[in-house]
Design a protein around this nucleic acid. Sequence first.
DNA 1: TTGAAAGCGCTAACAG
DNA 2: CTGTTAGCGCTTTCAA
Lengths: 324, 324
Amino acid sequence: MARIKDVAKEAGVAASTVSLVLNKKGYVSEETRLKVEAAVKKLNYIPSEMARNLSLRRTNIIGVIVPSIAHPFFSELAEALETELYSLGYKMMLCCTKYKENSERKFIDMLKRRTMDGIIMGAHSLDVSIYEGLKEPIIAFDRYLNEDIPIVHCDHCYGGRLAAEAFLQHECQHIVGIEGYQGVHTPANDYHRVFHQAMREHGVATDVLEMPWNAFTYEDFLLTAEKLFAEYHELDGIFGSDMAIASCMRVAARKGYRIPQDIRLVAYDGTGMTQTGIQPVTAVRQPIEELAALAAKKVVNKVNGIEDNLPWVLKPRMLRGETC
Amino acid sequence: MARIKDVAKEAGVAASTVSLVLNKKGYVSEETRLKVEAAVKKLNYIPSEMARNLSLRRTNIIGVIVPSIAHPFFSELAEALETELYSLGYKMMLCCTKYKENSERKFIDMLKRRTMDGIIMGAHSLDVSIYEGLKEPIIAFDRYLNEDIPIVHCDHCYGGRLAAEAFLQHECQHIVGIEGYQGVHTPANDYHRVFHQAMREHGVATDVLEMPWNAFTYEDFLLTAEKLFAEYHELDGIFGSDMAIASCMRVAARKGYRIPQDIRLVAYDGTGMTQTGIQPVTAVRQPIEELAALAAKKVVNKVNGIEDNLPWVLKPRMLRGETC
DNA sequence: TTGAAAGCGCTAACAG
DNA sequence: CTGTTAGCGCTTTCAA
């Protein structure tokens, strides 16, 4: 492996000059530039990023922490984040916490070790104490971590209202909401709160089925759907995340319910999966790409000590489907 | 930020001794160990990974290149890869090539710059020349890159036969296969080849609809499904990837086809999405977790110069659904 | 416009 | 068992 020294020797200049040429900094005469470029080509020189990182004290890596990536919401989010970070000159290191005891803490350790320059944190932490006093650049995605950590999220109150409006156009009597584990402190809890309140105001009965913590697989959701239909017999509406609704459709169909005649369904998230399959689902769509772009820009700005006045909250919108 | 020097001074020892303690290497007396540990705690010392990387010439990062992560197959794959890599002591850097011109080449450049120690390459490259003469550790996932790059993949010939058997239990006359862009050199092309051959041998007519290159979004698949039903009117069977089949279900339902009475569907991949929704899909399931574990182990072994005799090819299995 | 020299913060021979 | 020394390969003052 050729090093910068070798290139310098080959070109008959100093290493620092090679550095200047490579990074297009300072003033270098055309002549020496050409000599250096020729030497680079001849030796097939490729600078070591590790050395560069150490010298510059930055890696241009942003860590992204999510519970799971095998989940439509997080997979669309991760894709958008990666694309946006890439266009900002950063690479994305991914951590899925779901199956890994303590991995969240280890990831925060990496941040302190400067393995990455900053973090976008979207996992469902129960123990938020590890974020206390953290000086490194970090942005929360749809999670409350602490007062000092800014948080990018969707306007879930508005989302809850959209869902309520969809149901209120029909004559539902009893709607069950499938919620994530309530021990997680997230703005997303708002959409259920607002939804149930709106339904109550209109005299519609609602119930809540809470998912276990960190349950994100198809199996988890199918089990929950089974439980829901076993527990509630009079229901005529279900409100929950895309995965929850997809699983309920499966169980409802098996039990002979017709959708939407017997039972109405509204999904929250509105990822691509709601728009394929036999019946496209009526869904509240979170603006995933825009949220990701925002989070990426904000964390990069933070890394570079730039203040911005980008918004923190973006509005969802309704996707009209055939299930409500 | 405290450095190893500061810790050494605080503990009254040399930096190298601190290093030994931190990395649990060599022999260090209990007494000095305690002194060092106390100093570490007192100064709140966290070693810099960049310096470590430079010194060791390794980052413990594995790059994973896929076309898109917002796609059920790749998202399940990425999750499994990340989990496996994590358990082997590696971090995963992700690159989605779909929307990024030239990003594949840039990623290979990073490998040469030693930004990461190795790569698992699963994107749909058209230009395979960038892999020629590559000395760095790289494993291909379901892609032919060149003679020197080993490739982990599913036994697609067997998968094609499984799909054929599913259809042959019924009386199909005309089956259309939705295929990926054939310009990509991948073992996955085998399953269609084997499938069509088997159908021909049993006197069943088949046709092929080819997707454009790098088309992986829900919209891409919905367009293809529309095209399929516009082009073929007599069809009574469709074979394609999970996403293709999900989209066809949508269009078929809209056109009034009953599934499976009027039209039979078999999906290839068998990701979680096939098992939710109104009708669970009959699918050939690739052993994603096992493939990922294999690819991860192999790339790590390659990074460490270890020869292994782990298998390269794993068999898929049939998931019985309601669509065929 | 260029070069010498001093880091960046850690690891690893090697000597004692 | 511990300290000295010499890197790892690049960047960046600062002088010339």
